[in-house]
């Protein structure tokens, strides 16, 4: 319940935050965003940083904007900010569908999209959606800014391409305004984290799937694309049979021996759930495709 002592700095600019990270490089230093992964870990003694650098109020890390067919989401947007943005809902339907299922309403009011992506919890709801959205993670460090495609960002459990003095500043998502995006999740009944979660982003023309991007989290130690499912969908009519067949390929290219296996679910069961929830994500896509722009 009681975090260990630490020093706290509130950064007001990205540059200041980077300087603080460099200044405290010899200490165990953590960036504090929404704090909804970090603070519970500190309260239960699993994490005990010496220095916290609060970047939650850095103006440049906020805001949601569309720039030439690219949606830009500042890393420190709270989940509820993203969900409150019509632009985000229109241009990143899979990502917003996944964000709707993060935690609970209090968590969504406080946790940030950037904190989530940078923390790289395999059971988080966003990695699959970030992959199918073809998101690019923009990071800034002492040597300037660089852009990392989502599929190169994650190395494994809690491990990313972020350097020690780098900060995730924004997420860029190419507009998927013409696509339907869904997310189906099997939450742990206790923690609410995803035992498995499947994000789907489809373009459908006259009942036929033109493009399909399917991604999953919770199953492996980081988010994965389900290529065989995608292949089984493209060019097919989006019907029950296609969906069932496609979902049946969910684990084809995954090493099921490396599936997440913990108190919440065994690897074998996760493999099963991955098929079931792939099917549900696709079924939800059918419903969305049928509903004429319900959310708008």
């Amino acid at each position: 319940m009681y975090p260990d002592e630490f020093d706290y700095y509130e950064a007001t600019t990205i540059e200041e935050a980077i300087d603080l990270l460099e200044d405290n490089a010899m200490e165990e230093t953590e960036l504090l965003a929404g704090g909804h992964s970090l603070l519970p870990a500190m309260k239960t003694g699993l994490s005990s940083p010496d220095v916290l650098i609060d970047i939650g109020e850095v103006d440049a890390l906020h805001g949601v904007a569309v720039d030439d067919e690219t949606l830009e989401i500042g890393a420190m947007n709270r989940y509820s900010d993203v969900l409150g943005s019509e632009d985000a809902r229109e241009h990143a339907p899979a990502l917003t569908a996944a964000i709707e299922r993060v935690g609970d309403r209090q968590v969504r009011n406080r946790g940030t999209i950037g904190g989530n992506l940078a923390h790289a919890d395999p059971a988080s709801d966003l990695p699959g959606a970030a992959l199918v959205s073809d998101a690019t993670l923009v990071v800034q460090g002492p040597d300037g800014e660089r852009s990392i495609p989502a599929d190169e960002f994650y190395y494994g459990m809690y491990a990313t391409d972020l350097g020690p003095a780098e900060i995730l500043t924004k997420i860029e998502v190419p507009s998927a305004a013409d696509a339907v995006g869904t997310y189906a999740k099997k939450p742990s009944p206790s923690s609410g984290y995803a035992m498995v979660g499947v994000a789907a982003l489809l373009t459908v023309d006259d009942g036929t799937v033109e493009s399909a991007r399917i991604g999953a989290n919770g199953a492996m130690d980081h988010g994965v694309r389900l290529d065989p499912v995608e292949e089984a969908l493209v060019g097919e009519s989006l019907d029950e049979e296609t969906i069932a067949t496609a979902a049946g390929h969910a684990t084809d290219e995954l090493d099921t021996a490396l599936m997440m296996d913990d108190l919440q679910a065994s690897g074998e069961f996760r493999a099963q759930l991955l098929e079931v929830y792939t099917e549900r994500a696709l079924e939800a896509a059918v419903d969305r495709a049928a509903a004429p722009a319900a959310a708008d």
Binding site: S188, P189, S190, L263
Partner: peptide, 13 residues
């Protein structure tokens, strides 16, 4: 105890 918190012990919601 493996189910040592509400993260792992499911108190119904």
């Amino acid at each position: 105890l493996l189910t040592g918190s509400m993260q792992d012990y499911a108190v119904p919601k």
